[in-house]
Each structure stands twice: as structure tokens, then as C-alpha cells.
Design a protein around this nucleic acid. Sequence first.
DNA 1: TTGACACAATTACAAATGTACTCGATACTT
DNA 2: AAGTATCGAGTACATTTGTAATTGTGTCAA
Lengths: 129, 129
Amino acid sequence: MPPRPGLSKSELEVARMVWTLKDANVRSVHEAIAENRDIDFTTVQTYLRRLAEKGYLNVRLEGRSRFYSPRVRPRTVIRETVDDLVERLFGGEAMPLMKHLVEEGRFSDGEIDQLRQLIDRMEGADDEQ
Amino acid sequence: MPPRPGLSKSELEVARMVWTLKDANVRSVHEAIAENRDIDFTTVQTYLRRLAEKGYLNVRLEGRSRFYSPRVRPRTVIRETVDDLVERLFGGEAMPLMKHLVEEGRFSDGEIDQLRQLIDRMEGADDEQ
DNA sequence: TTGACACAATTACAAATGTACTCGATACTT
DNA sequence: AAGTATCGAGTACATTTGTAATTGTGTCAA
């Protein structure tokens, strides 16, 4: 259903970096990812190109290098991705995923409070876009 | 980190069917999936074989056809899958995913109550498996 | 000015994935 | 028994994904 090709796992990771950096060339994205795991510069370069091809990123030429920026809002990508997961892994039911997260995810008491408030605010409110 | 190869999106879907059916041959899995989307019998067959190769399913020969049953507990697969998603899409933070689900997932008031209770029971309790 | 670097664009390629065709063996029908 | 429909195992293959080697082009130090 999504209007563009889906993203692979690794592509997601790279996309997320661009969201955080807002506007970045290969070098800075590579540096950001390399902090966590070992990855080649050119590999990141490939991901960025593919993300742009798939319509997820804008590309701008500055000097002799390219700058990438988000073209689809994170929220949209997150929705599509999570929806797909929920569909495949839970047959479309989001509740089991919630339960899983609460049970497995080690939330601090503070976070739990935060969550409770979120839920309170949500109840009965059927507004969104 | 998982001790076996990860599952692809489609493989996940097929695995889930086997979890529900407990023990099934290609035909029954195919029928179950075909209710939702159009898919070839032999395609399902391939997924089942790969799932077994990857160590997710047990295979038993009965007559001249094979029966598949879960070998890894759903809970484990779910944990590995969700952990991976959280890592790639939210940099390892589960909270944003919770928020997303609460905001986007349309839960009924009843479900929200259910969730609230779950949270209450969770608070302070640092026990698991 | 001329190698030696630095950096990014291009090109490459094996493995994984989605998807199904082919073929052989049984079962069903006249 | 011969013909045909059924069903699943085996085989096939194009596309996508993960990952990087190669090539091209300025930059600087001797």
C-alpha cells in the first residue's frame, strides 16, 4: 500500500541518521553510524543513493558532493514500518505488541508514569490526522 | 546477536501461521494465508522449507508429506524481531515506539483500561522470563 | 609540476528474498 | 488399464539487499 518501495532494515537505520542530522553529506552520516558499528564509507554512500532513488530523501549538489535531507516525514515512515510489522507478526493487532513492550521492555518507573499520562490523555480522544 | 539467521518479513508471516496452527502441512498453512492475500502454494512451501533450514521449525514426515511445527517459541522470535526494529528505527529506545502505538494505534477505551492494568502490574516489578 | 592523498561518484557482486515453474508420484474415473 | 486430475517435492530465477572495490578528480606538500 505505501506509495513508495519499502525500506530495508539497514536503510531504515541510515534514514534515521538523516532525520537527526536534518541535512548531511555522506561523510557526516558515515561518521554518525560508524560510532556504533563498523561500516564502510561507500556502503553508507550506497544506502543514501538508494534512499534517494526510492523517494525518501532529497538530494542537493553542493560543490562536488551531495547533501541529503528528509523528503518523507519520519512519522510517516515509522507508521508504515510499524504497521507492516504489526501486520506480519501479530496479524494486524497492535495490542499484543504493546503488551510485549511493557513486559519485555525494561521501563523505569519514571517512564511508566510518562506512559500512563500519555494513555490518560489519549482516552476518549478520537482525534488525529 | 540472534543465534540463528533472522527472518524476512514474509517468513515471519508464515511462521506466525505455524504458531497458530501448532502443527501443519503446506496445504493448511497455504489455506490460512490465502484467506488474506493471494499467494501460490509453492511459495508457501518454499517459506516453510527455509524456516526449517534456519532452525525455526521442526519437520516431521507423515505419509508422503511434511508437517511443520514451531521449534523456537513465538515469544523469542517476537523479542528478537522487535528489538531489531527498535534498534534500527529508534536507536534502541523502546519508549518512542510505545508513544507511536498509543498515538497512532486506535485503541478502544476497553483496551486502554487493559493496558493501564498491565502497566500497574508492571511498575516496580523487575522480574521476567 | 608532480606524486601522494583525500574524498566522493561509479560500478560490482555475492547472498538473501520473493515468487513460481516443473516434474514425479498417487488417486480418481471410465 | 489408460487417462487425467491432484498434490507436494525439487528446481529455478529475477530482484533486492548488504557490502565494498574501483575509478575519477581536485588538493597539497616537496
